[in-house]
């Protein structure tokens, strides 16, 4: 136990912010920044993908469905390798590990989130879209002002649980030397060498605390959303994909 305390006391700054200011921002701050940016950017992409999948035009539906199936059928590590290889080619210069990881997260989470968005849209009663169209809105107009706002509110718990997944996915940045929390822990381990169990135990507990708290928040949110939906619909609403059914790494 003393060892755990000592390791924490000596290395907490490294775990928190990595080698900043003597290097890029790292540690848990990097993890969280990566996850927040990843989800924030993936979200609009996922809405577009979901709309494309639900659209009546085959030319949009098929490639989108194909893309989503490919991204979901391949390990995250492979997606990272692909992005690491293709992005420099596409934009003509080298990119940092952080940027690569961010792009990967946006793509990967975009694909998974689009399924969540799609389920959220489909869970709304059909009458909503019909009413909006009957009032004279175009398909896209109805989506924008009627369907999406409701679907997105209902999806908040699932969004939060995807955020938790993103946090877990950032750990793979370690493989391409992104200076996030897992990388920092490995640095500490390589310095200390004699206490690997303690170091990785601290790492595991840190992730556990962060992810568990966020998951509890997501479940609380889900209860609130369910209550509001029950009020909206007046009857038992269609079940959303369960909060924990996100991509896991």
């Amino acid at each position: 136990m003393i060892d755990l305390y000592n390791i924490l006391r000596d290395n907490w700054l490294l775990l928190l912010v990595g080698q900043y200011p003597n290097g890029p921002m790292g540690g848990i701050v990097c993890t969280l920044v990566l996850s927040v940016l990843g989800i924030a950017l993936a979200f609009p992409l996922s809405v577009l993908l979901a709309l494309a999948r639900l659209s009546p035009w085959r030319v949009l539906r098929w490639p989108t469905t194909g893309l989503i199936y490919v991204v979901r059928g391949v390990p995250l590590l492979m997606v990272i390798l692909w992005v690491y290889f293709l992005v420099p080619l596409l934009i003509g210069r080298n990119v940092s590990g952080f940027t690569t990881m961010l792009c990967t997260l946006v793509l990967y989470e975009g694909a998974y989130l689009s399924e969540v968005v799609r389920a959220g849209i489909q869970a709304l009663p059909r009458g909503q879209l019909e009413a909006a169209r009957a009032l004279g809105n175009s398909y896209l107009g109805a989506m924008w002002s009627v369907i999406l706002p409701q679907a997105l509110y209902n999806m908040l718990p699932s969004l939060l649980s995807q955020f938790v997944s993103a946090i877990k996915e950032t750990t793979l940045g370690y493989v391409i030397n992104v200076q996030e929390l897992t990388f920092a822990a490995n640095q500490i381990n390589n310095q200390l060498l004699t206490k690997p169990f303690h170091v990785f135990f601290i790492l595991a507990v840190t992730y556990y605390v962060v992810c568990y708290s966020l998951t509890q928040l997501a479940q609380w949110l889900e209860r609130r959303v369910m209550r509001k939906r029950q009020g909206q619909l007046g009857t038992a609403p269609a079940p959303l994909p369960p909060v924990a059914a996100a991509a896991e790494t």
């Binding site: 938790v164 946090i167 877990k168 996915e169 750990t171 793979l172 370690y174 897992t182 822990a185 490995n186 381990n189 690997p196 169990f197 303690h198 170091v199 990785f200 135990f201 790492l203 595991a204 992730y207 556990y208 992810c211 568990y212 998951t215 896991e248 790494t249």
Partner: peptide, 14 residues
């Protein structure tokens, strides 16, 4: 709640 990679490291290194 703990990322799979971290679990792997805890086993293999720890």
């Amino acid at each position: 709640n703990v990322p799979t990679l971290v679990q792997l490291m805890l086993w293999y290194f720890g």
